[in-house]
Write a protein that binds this DNA or RNA. Structure first.
Lengths: 347, 347
DNA sequence: TAAAAAAATACAATCGGTTGTATTTTTTAA
DNA sequence: TTAAAAAATACAACCGATTGTATTTTTTTA
């Protein structure tokens, strides 16, 4: 009953016998409003059950206090950590999130971008879809100076900041680890090389080989969508190789492909890591279920989400210029499990 | 350059030398506007690069075309399917989604509800958190007649609709399947019995036992948070039971607990399904990685998401009353894999 | 104590659509 | 050909907060 009609700043103003302007400014702690008046306003607002009308506010102020997030998919351990981190930072900064998934498709990503634009988000956080090759669909944002931050799957653009892990270093570390286990023919499963994450991992892999004087063999690099099927078909490919050509290790750019490749190889009678060692990327839950457990790289998703939002917020507050910070690199960590430990026989 | 200033309906009106009212009505195909005028307006809008200002619109019309979604967690296969289904239906109906996670915590859920309320969503879609015991935090919605739809983890409320699968029937089916495999002492791992999904699964389990003349043994029902740790500690519990008291099957209310229980039991030397059969619930990706693959129940997440949004939309359009439809039940499906097949020896 | 400076508050226009009602235009009927 | 009915369009108030500027009040300074 008392809940039926919306309370506005005018109601508060009338109630306290002051102007709506003062109420508006008082509610957001504007310094020109006397501190005692501010308290009275806050108290009255509480009493009357006032809630701010974001539409009236956004209409006038042209700020929505909303950030758009576009991700390829929501259903990965990594992404949900990212989102949790984003949500945390966003709510601390007074922003809300609108989340959309591109389902790895460029056209859907374009749609999402358009929707975000129409919803007039204050800023945009994007991890690019698998299929995205141009980022012209963000031009509306750039031309209106709406900050865009790329994370994880990034694109290079002079007017945006990227937040990533050092994929090169991580892949180097993985490859080096496999080499240290005595592996000589290390296969690499990669994704779309137009995406930084995959091209950098390939570079790191190559660099490690070079530094350890192992010749790079093009035939040992397979690229695909890193799906379950890709993993399985990679296994089939490996099995039909002549014995001398077979890899003694596989470094996959994600855990899914690694795991499904392992499953198929095990079924064919190969022993892991004895016959072939494995390492993945992402620290997906399945990496702890497969036997032997999969060596992988843990991604600091939560931190990445926080960093992305914090950076965006500081841009929006005018604390840092969009052109100031170009790239933020977070630390990732190699998790060694049984799938790659040739020296210590697996249980 | 042409992108710099926002185009409003007034610009269109001026351009065509008609009134803003006509433009406003024309843009949304109001029947009193001449069809030819509508076309001219649409064309001018396109030409001038008009985009509707949702704030001005929402401010006046009191509708936001936005639906709020509160889920326990985003990072499950099930939830992401649900969200994909919701997004699909929502965009078809002209709605946007604001998504928040409660992280299984009641206090976070209350926060989320408040935020959604302040954002003035037109309707709310909720799957309850693990820790939620009262749904009073949705009272604001009920008292303002903002429709709330519960899905999967539901609560009973006279003014809301629930969308679920028949957990009772599914659990019955699982239990019956295990019984048919010759299992006599079937353990059940359940969650918070205040939540329908878990209490219904328990009921289905009990009913199946009863119908097959197997005495219900309280000691065979363990409840917990169904986490990895819970699964592992359940295994420890099983191992310390006297041989005669040991279950010959475990039916877990989710796949995670089942899988981690299996891992621990395997490590202790038990053979699955010979010594102990397993069945889970959800058809999580890990169920296809564990060896032997886990028998489970597939949840129609995508359909559930679609159904939830469609129901909500039809409420909002006044096509159906909120009190008309009380519960919508979707069909789920038992997926039999090796973990429960005692008759066919596993490979 | 009066004038100047600073602090606090108020006025009034504004953001861009929406909507009930009035007005104008067109069509139909007599 | 004109009055009545229907269709199409326009007027003007309104939604609720924000903001540049003006006004009032309080404090400081001379």
């Amino acid at each position: 009953m008392s809940e039926e009609k919306e309370v506005t700043i005018y109601d508060i103003a009338r109630h306290l016998n002051i102007s709506a302007t003062t109420v508006s400014r008082g509610l957001k702690d504007h310094p020109t409003i006397n501190i005692k008046t501010r308290r009275k306003i806050a108290e009255a607002a509480r009493q009357l059950g006032y809630r701010s009308n974001t539409f009236a506010s956004s209409l006038r102020s042209k700020r929505t206090q909303t950030l758009g997030v576009i991700v390829p998919r929501l259903n990965s351990n990594f992404m949900s950590s990212v989102l949790a981190g984003m949500e945390n930072a966003a709510s601390r900064e007074g922003y809300n999130l609108i989340i959309a998934q591109s389902l790895e498709r460029a056209d859907k990503e374009m749609d999402n971008a358009q929707t975000m634009f129409n919803k007039r988000v204050d800023g945009l956080l994007v991890s690019l879809a698998y299929g995205t090759e141009s980022i012209r669909h963000f031009d509306d944002f750039f031309s209106r100076k709406i900050p865009v931050i790329f994370f994880d799957r990034v694109a290079v653009h002079p007017e945006s900041t990227s937040i990533i892990i050092d994929n090169h270093a991580a892949a180097y570390q993985v490859t080096q680890h496999l080499i240290e286990q005595g592996c000589k023919r290390i296969m690499h499963l990669g994704g779309n090389m137009a995406l930084n994450v995959y091209s950098e991992r390939l570079r790191g892999y190559k660099q490690a080989l070079r530094d350890h004087k192992i010749a790079f063999d093009e035939k040992l690099v397979l690229t695909g969508n890193l799906s379950e099927d890709f993993g399985a078909s990679t296994a089939a490919h490996i099995l039909q190789l002549k014995h001398k050509e077979r890899p003694d290790a596989v470094f996959s750019a994600n855990d899914t492909a690694a795991v499904y490749c392992m499953i198929a190889l095990k079924q064919a009678g190969l022993s892991i890591p004895k016959d072939i060692a494995f390492a993945g990327f992402n620290n997906d839950p399945i990496s702890k279920v497969i036997e032997p457990n999969l060596t992988t790289v843990n991604y600091p998703g939560y931190n990445m989400g926080q960093a992305a939002v914090n950076t965006l917020a500081s841009h929006l507050n005018g604390e840092t210029s969009i052109t100031d910070t170009n790239t933020i690199v977070l630390r990732s960590e190699l998790i060694v499990r049984d799938s790659s430990q040739k020296n210590i026989p697996s249980r």
